[in-house]
């Protein structure tokens, strides 16, 4: 091929691929709204808060961002709303070990941001992030678990608490909680966390039945 023919192949070929890309973009734009919930004014305001504080400078969202702090795509499914709000406004008051600084996020801004995070958690992301394979494999053997252990899994306590190295770091580590706290404390704390720990961001589990609370407490006591 002559250089001129190659040049034309480069120019028109690239243009051709770009046209295909534009057509696919138009098709995608038409499909996006059906793959996500409606964007309310609150969600939009929350997105603006996200930009204002440059959250992407540390976090990722939809897996894109700075890899310095956890991904925010499914955070509203993992953490209770009350916790998120308190954390956003003053991270270290909730978790002294938190790396996130206090930015001066207002109560209203926090509400908007949470609305935005709830919206993004419902976007159809083709199954991302995937459910951890090994954690699922462990859950299959659930038949041998005590009622308290099963409740611990069902209520997703490990989203915030760690047990033998597995679980979240936002709440206290529960590996030896049985040797730190007695039965009355744990049972009372489940019903009204703030009465025991003034700054606690843990939601109340008073809606559980007395039987369930006792099973969960039995499990906690056994952790020595």
């Amino acid at each position: 091929m002559s250089n001129k023919a190659l040049r034309n192949l480069f120019a028109f070929g690239s243009l051709g691929f770009f046209v295909i890309f534009v057509i696919l973009t138009i098709d995608t734009m038409g499909k996006l709204d059906k793959r996500a919930p409606e964007i309310t004014e609150e969600v939009n305001l929350g997105k603006k808060v996200w930009h204002k504080y440059d959250c992407i400078g540390c976090h990722t969202i939809l897996g894109n961002g700075s890899y310095f702090a956890p991904d925010m795509t499914k955070i509203s499914e993992k953490k209770p709303k009350e916790y998120l709000k308190q954390f956003l406004m003053d991270p270290k008051s909730v978790n002294p070990k938190a790396s996130m600084p206090k930015f001066g996020i207002t109560s209203q801004e926090a509400d908007h941001l949470i609305a935005f995070l709830e919206w993004i958690s419902k976007v159809d992301t083709n199954g991302w992030p995937p459910k951890p394979l090994l954690a699922q494999a462990v859950a299959v053997t659930g038949a041998e678990l005590s009622p308290g252990q099963r409740l611990y899994q069902q209520l997703n306590c490990s989203a915030c608490h760690m047990l033998n190295g597995i679980g979240g770091t936002t709440g206290p580590d529960l590996t030896h909680v049985g040797s730190r706290r007695d039965r009355t404390w744990i049972l009372g704390h489940f019903k009204d966390p703030k009465a025991y720990v003034p700054n606690s961001a843990m939601p109340s589990y008073g809606h559980l039945s007395e039987k369930e609370l006792n099973e969960l407490t039995d499990f906690m006591i056994s952790l020595k």
Binding site: F21, L24, D27, T28, L32, R35, D124, T125
Partner: peptide, 15 residues
């Protein structure tokens, strides 16, 4: 150009 698609796997775009 079409390789851009590897960024469109998981962000809410069609499969």
């Amino acid at each position: 150009i079409l390789g851009t698609g590897h960024h469109y796997y998981w962000i809410g775009t069609p499969p």
